[in-house]
Every structure is written in C-alpha cells, then in structure tokens.
Computed example of a mutant assay.
Amino acid sequence: MPATHLVDRGVIRVSGEDARDFLQNLVTNDMDPVAPDQAGYGALLTPQGKIISDFLIVAIPEGEGGGFLLDAPLLQTADLMKRLKLYKLRSKVALDDLTEATAVIASSDGSALPEDAGLVYTDPRLPGLGQRAMTDRDGAAEIATVPAEDWHARRIGLGVPDGGRDFSYGDAFPHEALLDQLGGVSFRKGCYIGQEVVSRMQHRGTARTRVVPVVFSEGIAAETGAEAVAGGKPLGKVGSAANGRALALLRLDRVADALAAGEPLLGGGLAFTLAKPDFIRFPFPGEAGFGAAA
C-alpha cells in the first residue's frame, strides 16, 4: 500500500445534534452532500473573505458516534479551534482537537487504501488525489512509508494548491487558492462568513490573482518563494515545486500583458510557461474570454 503520513495535518471533531447546521452556516461549501461515503472540501473565512483555513470534511457514521472530522493544516488547527468556539454560541455542538492521537495518511499514487487503514475517504477535490484515511497516530508509520515529498510531487503535478506552500492563510481569497475550481465553494447555498465578498468576486469576475501550474523550460524549478517577473515587473511568487513543475500565485492580467509583449516569464530567473490542467475552467491568458472572467 503506497501511502504517506501527512505529518502537517491536524484533525478536529465537530459533533452534537447541531453539528451539520453549525458548519453549514460557517463554511464555504454546501454541507448537505457530505456523508460517510462522500467527503467535502471547504474553508472558514474572515468576514473580509480571506481564508483562515481550508479543510476536508469527513462525516462519521452514526454507528461510530456521528458528527464530522475536519482534516486541516496542522499549523491552522489552534486558530481554527479558536474561531469555531467563537461562533459556537448556544449551538449544541462539541469541538475536540484530536490531532495528538490521530494521523492523516494519503495514497501516494492515487490508488485505493485498504478498508482497515482507518476511517477511509476519497479526496473530494480531484479524483487523481485518491484516498485518504484517519488512523491512530501510533501505528501510522507502519502503514504509511512513502516520503511526503512523493505525495506533494503528485499533488503539484495535478495542479492542486496547498495552503502555506502555495498561498498564505489570512491573506488569500478562495478564488486565488482555486477553491472555486476544486468544489470548495458553493454559490447556491445560504449565507456563510465572508460570503458577500466571495460572491462579488465570482459574479464580477475580479479574481485576477490565481494559483496556477507552471512548467520550467530547463526542467529545474525555482525555489519556493522565488519572485516571478516579466519585463522587470512583478507577477507573483513561485510556490511548491517538484520535477521541473511548480504552482505559482500570479497576477494573470500581468502575465497576459507580458505574453502580448513577447516578454519571457521568469521565476527565480528561470523561464517558465503556464500549464492548464483539465479541472480549471476559467480562461488562461491567451485563451478566448480571458479578461472577462479571469
């Protein structure tokens, strides 16, 4: 079983009779489809629409106590718990940080995990990401032996951003982090924290900055955090990289201007081009409709 222990993930349990409604009123995704056989992907935002944390949402079968588990970035779990408690008010909800006892593992090649790996769920963002599981931390090392670098290389190759590497929590909007492309935002559900800003960006097409996959011409990627420029003007920054590919947070309107002027795109001094994956639906620079809904 080729699997990776994602040591940078934490786990928060949200339980109680109001758990579903509590999350529905807070997170960006629609909680209605989330069930034991269908995980969800969403985020908690600031009132200004910035991402506090994104996470996968896993429903616990009623026979195992019910409620939901949030597969969240480890460095965000403390702040996420604090924010959730702030919004709890009189809701009949219990919040527990299970990180110390629980590990998140992920298929490193997109294949299925064994049923006895723990609480197994399919990554809802993209089929190619395969399955994940929550299991006892003490035994995680025995069943997940593939280095994390291998899992991230697969993620980067698929074009899926990772918070803290490809965008900054507290600074990025959901559109910038591709949540709207990966099923992490519902534009049909009712209100949630930051919903007005997100809806405005969607309907006005004002998301000029996006995390996009890039390919370096020489097969060697720039370091994470390297500046991306064209014609001496800043485009953004390079994020996580592997095998000559990377994810970069770029101003796509500036990329379009550079391409129209024949100026090379450079990250850390290395030339790159944009590589559009199938799941991205908005037009890239040079495609028909770009500028209308970038």
Rank of each mutant, 00 (worst) to 15 (best):
G65H: 06
R125G: 13
D71Y: 08
D79S: 11
E64S: 08
S91F: 15
K88N: 11
S111L: 05
Q76P: 03
A144W: 02
D96F: 05
L158Q: 00
R137E: 12
R155S: 02
T145V: 14
V160W: 01
S108Q: 02
L119W: 05
R154H: 08
P147E: 04
D116I: 04
L70C: 08
D79I: 10
A133L: 02
V104T: 05
A78R: 15
T122A: 14
M134W: 04
K82S: 14
R90S: 11
D79G: 15
P161V: 12
T77D: 02
R83S: 04
M81L: 13
T135R: 04
G157H: 02
L119R: 11
P127I: 02
S91A: 15
V104E: 00
L95Q: 11
A112I: 05
T77S: 15
A101N: 12
L126M: 06
I105W: 00
A94G: 11
D116P: 08
T122E: 13
L89P: 05
L74Q: 06
R83F: 00
D96Y: 03
V104M: 03
L95F: 15
G130N: 14
V120G: 06
E142I: 03
P147G: 04
R137M: 10
I143K: 07
L113F: 01
S111H: 12
R132L: 01
R132H: 06
G163C: 05
L119P: 05
K92Q: 06
G118D: 11
P73V: 00
V120Y: 05
G139H: 04
P114D: 10
I156F: 08
V160D: 00
I156M: 13
A140G: 06
